[in-house]
Computed example of a mutant assay.
Amino acid sequence: MKKWTVDQSHSTVGFEVKHMMVSKVKGQFTSYTADVAASELEDLSTASIGFTFDVASIDSNSDDRDNHLKSADFFDVETYPSITFHSTNITKDGNDYKVTGDLTIKDVTKPVTFDVEYGGKGTNPWGVEVYGFEAEAKINREEFGLTWNAALETGGVLVGKDIKIKVELEVNPSA
Results as ranks from 00 to 15, higher is better:
101 G>H: 02
90 I>N: 02
78 E>R: 12
98 K>N: 07
99 V>S: 01
85 F>T: 11
104 T>I: 07
63 D>M: 13
108 V>W: 08
88 T>W: 10
64 D>P: 12
128 V>K: 14
109 T>K: 15
83 I>G: 05
107 D>V: 11
81 P>M: 06
118 Y>M: 04
126 W>G: 04
121 K>I: 12
112 V>H: 01
113 T>I: 05
63 D>G: 14
90 I>K: 01
72 A>D: 15
90 I>F: 02
63 D>S: 15
60 S>I: 02
73 D>T: 06
96 D>H: 07
73 D>I: 09
113 T>P: 03
129 E>I: 13
80 Y>A: 02
105 I>C: 04
85 F>K: 07
109 T>S: 15
87 S>H: 04
112 V>R: 00
113 T>E: 01
83 I>N: 05
108 V>F: 08
77 V>L: 03
102 D>M: 12
62 S>C: 12
82 S>P: 08
102 D>Y: 09
58 I>F: 08
117 E>K: 14
106 K>N: 10
113 T>R: 01
102 D>V: 09
85 F>R: 08
70 K>M: 04
104 T>Q: 06
104 T>M: 07
129 E>M: 13
93 D>H: 05
69 L>E: 01
112 V>K: 00
110 K>T: 07
122 G>F: 08
83 I>C: 08
94 G>F: 06
80 Y>T: 01
102 D>S: 14
107 D>M: 09
94 G>Q: 06
85 F>W: 09
70 K>N: 06
88 T>Y: 11
70 K>I: 03
105 I>L: 03
126 W>M: 14
62 S>K: 10
80 Y>P: 02
94 G>M: 06
94 G>S: 07
121 K>T: 15
126 W>A: 13
124 N>Y: 13
68 H>W: 10
122 G>Q: 06
79 T>N: 15
121 K>V: 14
120 G>D: 10
72 A>G: 13
110 K>Y: 10
124 N>I: 10
76 D>F: 04
68 H>Y: 12
85 F>P: 09
78 E>K: 15
63 D>H: 13
81 P>R: 07
128 V>C: 04
64 D>F: 14
68 H>C: 12
63 D>F: 13
114 F>R: 00
94 G>L: 08
104 T>D: 07
116 V>T: 08
108 V>P: 08
97 Y>A: 00
105 I>K: 00
60 S>H: 03
69 L>S: 03
71 S>D: 08
107 D>R: 07
88 T>K: 13
128 V>P: 04
60 S>W: 01
74 F>N: 03
68 H>K: 12
73 D>A: 09
106 K>W: 04
120 G>R: 08
122 G>K: 04
119 G>W: 05
88 T>D: 10
77 V>T: 13
78 E>D: 15
78 E>H: 11
79 T>R: 15
74 F>H: 03
115 D>E: 11
115 D>H: 05
96 D>S: 09
83 I>D: 06
87 S>D: 05
62 S>D: 13
60 S>M: 01
105 I>V: 12
65 R>I: 05
110 K>C: 09
118 Y>G: 04
128 V>E: 12
109 T>H: 14
97 Y>D: 00
115 D>R: 00
118 Y>V: 06
71 S>W: 07
77 V>R: 00
88 T>C: 10
126 W>L: 14
125 P>E: 01
87 S>N: 05
120 G>M: 11
98 K>V: 00
107 D>S: 14
60 S>R: 02
98 K>M: 03
58 I>T: 04
99 V>D: 00
91 T>I: 14
